[in-house]
Simulated assay, not measured.
Amino acid sequence: MIYVKIYRVQGEVLLAACDEELLGKTFREGDLKLEVKERFYRGELVEEDALGPLLHEATIANLTGERCVSKAIELGYVDEDRVLRIQGVPHAQMARLFL
């Protein structure tokens, strides 16, 4: 399962999503630190297949965890070569540009 939370601010739709078991944890590697904060990520708990329509609507996304990031890669929203790993945990950000 994946936690998803949607923020709507000034015409932007930000999707925060993380694998359920990562919520509340902090990961460090070298100078990098990834905090999976409950106040940012904890929203609705959904199956990973629900991520597709949410990513389609999002203009910005913060994705953390194997299931979350893998689904975004599978659907073409994230380039696998652009995924950051901190202590082995994948993290990706997406921004949709409208020209």
Rank of each mutant, 00 (worst) to 15 (best):
P90L: 01
E66F: 13
L15S: 08
Y77K: 10
G52W: 09
G76S: 13
G43L: 05
L15V: 10
L63K: 07
A61W: 11
E48Q: 09
A92K: 01
D81L: 08
P90E: 01
E74L: 11
L55M: 13
H91Q: 02
L51V: 08
E12L: 11
L45I: 11
L34W: 02
L14T: 12
V36T: 00
V36S: 00
S70D: 15
H91T: 00
R39E: 15
Y41L: 10
P53M: 12
P53I: 02
E48V: 15
V89R: 00
V4F: 05
P90R: 01
E21K: 15
V78W: 03
M1L: 10
R85Y: 07
G88E: 01
L15K: 08
L63H: 05
D19Q: 05
I60E: 14
L75Y: 13
K25L: 13
C18S: 09
L23T: 06
A16W: 04
Q87G: 02
L15Y: 11
L14V: 14
E47T: 09
V13K: 14
A17N: 10
L75M: 07
L54F: 07
M94T: 02
S70T: 10
L63T: 10
Q10A: 14
A50S: 12
D19C: 03
V9Y: 08
S70N: 15
K25C: 00
H91E: 00
L14C: 12
K37P: 00
V83Y: 01
L55C: 09
E35H: 04
L97Q: 09
A72K: 03
R96D: 02
R42W: 00
D31Y: 08
D49R: 13
L54C: 12
T59D: 11
D31M: 12
E80R: 12
R42P: 00
L14N: 07
K33G: 03
E57L: 15
E74K: 13
V78N: 03
Y3K: 06
I73E: 08
N62R: 13
E20N: 09
D81C: 07
M94W: 04
L84W: 03
Y7S: 08
Y41M: 03
T64S: 09
Q87N: 02
